[in-house]
């Protein structure tokens, strides 16, 4: 995956943002399990910090444009958490 955390600048399509979220979230899911059994691995810690930054940035960009993915990120004046589609219906 692209490890460069600087994604500002050119507008990013919704699908590209979803791909960034899926990739960074999966990288995080995988590296946390590795770190659980290798807590002193410096390279894995660097990778962890990098993917956390990528995930935060992609999640924030997505949620500000397309609605919340986590319950503390409802940014508009309406409670958009209830909006369809849900993940099992072909949402994010």
């Amino acid at each position: 995956m692209n490890m460069n955390p600087s994604m500002q600048g050119a507008p990013i399509s919704k699908q590209a943002l979803i791909n960034q979220i899926n990739e960074s979230c999966f990288a995080l899911d995988d590296v946390i399990l590795f770190l659980d059994t290798h807590p002193n691995d410096a390279a894995a810690m660097d990778y962890y910090r990098n993917v956390v930054a990528l995930k935060r940035q992609a999640m924030d960009l997505y949620q500000r444009q397309y609605g919340p993915l986590v319950i503390d990120s409802v940014y508009g004046n309406r409670w958009d958490w209830i909006n369809d589609p849900w993940p099992w219906e072909g949402g994010c």
């Binding site: 979220i21 979230c25 899911d29």
Partner: peptide, 13 residues
Amino acid sequence: WIYEKKLQYPVNI
């Protein structure tokens, strides 16, 4: 636990 309103890996059948 905190719910993320997304799948871990996409499912589009």
